[in-house]
Design a protein around this nucleic acid. Structure first.
Lengths: 204, 204
DNA sequence: ATCTCAGAGTTAACAACGTTAACTTACAGA
DNA sequence: TCTGTAAGTTAACGTTGTTAACTCTGAGAT
């Protein structure tokens, strides 16, 4: 009875190898430039083996993507989150952008590539959980009277969208391809600050 | 001497046909799903003909992209721009997002696809001109004391980044693939408003 | 001990793609 | 009439994702 278990473990090992090799290659090259043959070469298996573990290339990358969302969630919560919700928002924003700039090709696939039409998001998805961190912080800040009233979902979405925009630009363009060439290296920081400021209630 | 002129005109006509067919196809299918053969079929030429007019697929799409930036600039300035710089910013924001949602695949290539490493931006580029519209409005608003002090380039970039973020999300995800499912259909509006609000000086 | 069969892996091939080499054709200028 | 240029075509190449058909290993049944 332990035999099928061992079999499954061995199969899982190969799957792991594929995912790790693929992650490494994608991180350096991006989706289009990585071929199934290259992934197979990297782990010294034949290309068809991959198809025993994944439906097709997109399925493989989606599996990678799923793991990356888990890593993002881990990064967001790493080192413990501050009590103060505003500080928490700022810290999560920094972690988010750091993750994006460290793995631009993964960010690209996670947030810049259209999903399959039948792809849906469940509540226990690490992506959804990350968003909930943001949403909760917004709610708490509202409760403390630090953020404007209004649907917290909208506030969270707007903050995320703003941060995402700055991130997406930096992940897509080189500094000298920007309009207004000396692109603020702290564009993300500024954008994040401004998005928060827009929702803050005036002090005094 | 008028002969070479006519020749050039004819060549330009074919180039036009290619661009128009390609634009139509790309608008519906997006970059990867449009093949050179499909473009050639659409205009009833052989695939190789395209290579007499464009270096390769990327060159063709870049030409399209260049035209699209001109269209975007036209859209931004259509109907005349308001005197009031804040209103102008709001109106340009609406035009920008409308353009994006109308031609998502073009937006994708214009703003979401990395450029060639050797691609540089000149000052008379329609893209740069569009950014200057934004920059000028920011400067004027600052001069009127409506926006915070600070480098107007940064303000313009942050506003653009925020708007771009909301746009990119809507162009990438379907409504039901969002975290927090009932995605604000006016996410763009809210994001644009909030980005402006963050830079506005408190009234009174 | 032999047979069977499932299932992981391989080889070889397919169709589609971007692209190119070699050829054809049309036609203005010497 | 000859020549050369340049646009267009046919046929092919190399690469890609993917699949069909096969091999091989080894556990369970007879």
């Amino acid at each position: 009875m332990g035999i099928t278990e061992r079999r499954e473990r061995e199969k899982e090992e190969v799957r792991r190898k594929i995912l790790d090799a693929a992650r490494e290659l994608f991180a350096h090259e991006g989706y289009d430039r990585v071929t199934m043959r290259a992934v197979a070469d990297a782990i010294e298996y034949s290309p068809t083996t991959i198809y025993n573990h994944f439906e097709d290339k997109e399925d493989l990358v989606e599996a990678l993507c799923h793991e990356d969302f888990a890593r993002l969630f881990a990064v967001l919560t790493a080192g413990g989150l501050p009590e103060d919700p505003i500080e928490r928002l700022a810290q999560m924003g920094r972690a988010y952008s750091q993750f994006a700039l460290q793995y631009p090709n993964h960010y690209r696939f996670m947030f810049l590539t259209p999903k399959h039409p039948d792809h849906e998001m469940s509540d226990d998805d690490p992506g959804a959980q990350s968003f909930r961190l943001l949403l909760d912080a917004c709610r708490e800040a509202q409760a403390l009277g630090r953020l404007r009233p209004g649907p917290p979902e909208t506030i969270a979405q707007v903050i995320w969208a703003s941060l995402h925009g700055a991130t997406a630009l930096l992940v897509t363009y080189r500094a000298d391809q920007f309009p207004c060439a000396p692109a603020a290296s702290d564009l993300i920081q500024q954008t994040c600050d401004n998005a928060l400021r827009g929702f803050m209630v005036e002090k005094g």
